[in-house]
Design a binder for these strands. Structure first.
Lengths: 213, 213
DNA sequence: GTCTATATGCCGATAGAC
DNA sequence: GTCTATCGGCATATAGAC
């Protein structure tokens, strides 16, 4: 009550204000990178969108490359956590088909609805400078491994035929899901509906079911 | 026989030398755009790779945007022709599954083996400036329509179940095929093998075949 | 922490010589 | 047809005031 206003009680408030600015910069940068790609976004544009000047960014980040690496890693982390969380919320005896559809829905929701970081990843990684790609590789590999484990588990539960090439399946599946970023429009139908449609197509395929004997 | 050497018999040779330069520029630009995206490639880099100076490009093209539009359209044209040609080479009574696998293989070959123009398309379109996207839309729509017709035909021949959502199938299929550009390495196995694996996964799906009764 | 000012260099595009 | 030279502008990054 009697503490002088001129002396902050701790550094925490100052630190968290810096943290808030830093987070705001990351948020607007993720959105801009998602829209225009790595080379298409200038630090000036990011600074302006975050309400500060270009030079001030260097208080928070060492370089444009360091900034984008942080966004790429955060994007993979976000979708990885979303998928793991959704899957672990299932009953332990859920069947393989439910497992697949749940993971597909969680991935699409992170990509299309929740996270500019995740979608920035899909757009930026392929054409980022080589040092950026190299520094993001480990996080990406871990997410690929998460899907390989998911597919193996679904196979163990009898939802995937024994002779399927699981690596090819993972590449096809994630490629198809990520590509939806290029055309998905929420007003044409929600993420839920898309996830259901894709899960069905990927699981049953295009071929007609053999007639019951 | 006695015509003076100092007078060219026609303008054709001169014209075709300009045409050759123009084609060389388009070829190297397609490769660079494929690797680095639209904003990641400068006209100076294109000129250097084609063996001339930046200013000279303006003799052949009005602007960077005009150049990239030409590459995008050529890329769609190339894959569209490859697919139509491959399909029309099939016997008239080919079954629907053969039709699908043939189209998938032709698309992947154009994307991964034959045409920098086609692969530049996948990388560049999504983040090109809006006027560029607008000017390329018609050609893209025509290729989408080609696949819609293909899928409808396969359905008519009994290779696709009657209740399938053909638009979703087209988006999933082309999304998965185009994504292979991001990871495909020829030394891990050829385009042929990839096409066969993908056609099988897309047609049969991941689910085990129901046991015969 | 954020500012202004600036260093240094590349960008797309144009003008005019050859 | 291609060159050199150059325009005005924007890029990343840094220095130092406040």
């Amino acid at each position: 009550m009697a503490s002088p206003e001129t002396i902050p009680v701790s550094d925490a408030p100052l630190d968290s204000r810096a943290e808030a600015t830093r987070r705001r910069v990351l948020d607007v940068a993720a959105r801009l990178f998602r829209e225009r790609g790595y080379a298409g976004v200038s630090l000036r544009a990011i600074a302006a969108a975050a309400g500060l000047k270009a030079g001030s960014l260097y208080y928070h980040f060492d370089s444009k490359e360091a900034l984008v690496v942080e966004i790429l890693d955060e994007g993979i982390r976000a979708v990885h956590e979303a998928v793991e969380q959704a899957v672990s919320a299932l009953p332990a005896d859920a069947d393989g088909a439910t497992l697949l559809e749940t993971a597909i829905r969680a991935h699409l929701e992170s990509l299309l609805r929740l996270s500019d970081y995740t979608s920035a990843n899909v757009r930026v990684f392929g054409q980022a400078p080589e040092p950026v790609r190299r520094r993001s590789l480990a996080v990406r590999r871990a997410y690929d491994a998460c899907w390989d484990a998911l597919l193996a588990e679904a196979q163990a539960r009898g939802a995937i035929r024994a002779d399927a090439d699981l690596r090819a399946a993972r590449l096809l599946l994630l490629g198809a899901l990520n590509a939806s970023l290029e055309w998905f429009e929420p007003r044409r139908g929600g993420v839920e509906a898309l996830a259901a449609r894709y899960a069905d197509l990927l699981w049953h395929g295009l071929a007609p079911r053999p007639a019951a004997a």
